[in-house]
Nucleic acid binder design. Structure first.
Length: 255
DNA sequence: GTTGAGCGTT
């Protein structure tokens, strides 16, 4: 009966957004509604879900009608155990349109922030960019390392800084010593290395790693392609390009 | 079927 987020944001002009973190992946808006509604008038509740699976991401947004109620809910629900997990309730820092929020309320601040606006460094989160098939969620799952590192941050901090300086010193010198020379040499090395590496991962199956092409893409051509990637796109075109310079290309590709 | 820092939708 609760259609939160299904019709989009109903009214966020005078509403306070609260961010609920640390909630279980099975907690839904309906479960939070009675909990938050008890402390105030909840205008809308929205829980970001994954586009692939549609599961909740682990946090929800609760919009209150009044700030006092929202504050109360934060103070009362913050740290409350929901579904066996302690949830974190706090005022949202950013809005749906990536707008700044002050105390939970969206601050409608025009681009004309002043004369020092360009000096600002807006945080550009390419969250959707990784929506393709990247597990951004799992990637950050490794929180243990972070915590451990955080502990040593006090003492290691100096060490880290020095390490960086030291590392940069020799590196810089080396790079400058034979910058392009090394680069050039490496380039060739990489090329050769890449060649045998292709058939390496397929010791058992000598057939093409990918599904067999329905039309037979001429494996022969592929071999040559890797050897002399000088011009291959022109060859595909065929006539038009051929007409222009059939001599050098043909000769090169043929042998 | 799993996971755990973060800031949002038809």
């Amino acid at each position: 009966m609760s259609h939160f987020g299904r019709s989009g944001p109903p009214d966020i002009s005078d509403t306070y957004s609260l961010l609920i973190l640390n909630i279980t992946f099975r907690t839904t808006a309906d479960d939070l509604f009675p909990l938050f509604d008890k402390y105030g008038k909840v205008v809308d509740i929205f829980i970001p879900k994954d586009r692939r699976t549609g599961d909740s991401r682990g946090f929800a947004f609760v919009r209150y009608k009044y700030a006092d109620e929202a504050q109360k809910a934060v103070d009362r629900l913050d740290g409350r155990v929901v579904d066996g997990r302690e949830i974190t309730v706090q005022f949202a820092k950013y809005g749906p349109n990536a707008e700044r929020i002050h105390k939970g309320r969206i601050v409608e601040s025009a681009p004309r922030s002043g004369h020092r606006s360009r000096s600002r460094s807006p945080r550009r989160r390419h969250r959707d960019d990784h929506y393709r098939d990247r597990d951004y969620r799992r990637s950050r799952s490794r929180s243990h390392d972070r915590y451990e590192r955080d502990r040593y941050r006090g003492k290691d901090r100096d060490s880290r800084r020095r390490s960086r300086s030291r590392s940069a010193s020799p590196d810089y010198s080396k790079g400058r010593g034979r910058g392009r020379y090394d680069d050039d040499r490496r380039s060739v090395s990489r090329s050769i290395s890449a060649s045998p590496a292709r058939r390496s991962p397929s010791p058992r199956k000598s057939t093409s790693p990918r599904k067999s092409p329905p039309r037979g893409e001429s494996p022969d051509r592929r071999s040559r392609d890797g050897r002399s990637p000088s011009r291959r796109s022109v060859s595909t075109r065929g006539r038009l390009a051929d007409s222009r310079s059939p001599s050098p290309q043909n000769s090169d590709v043929d042998e």
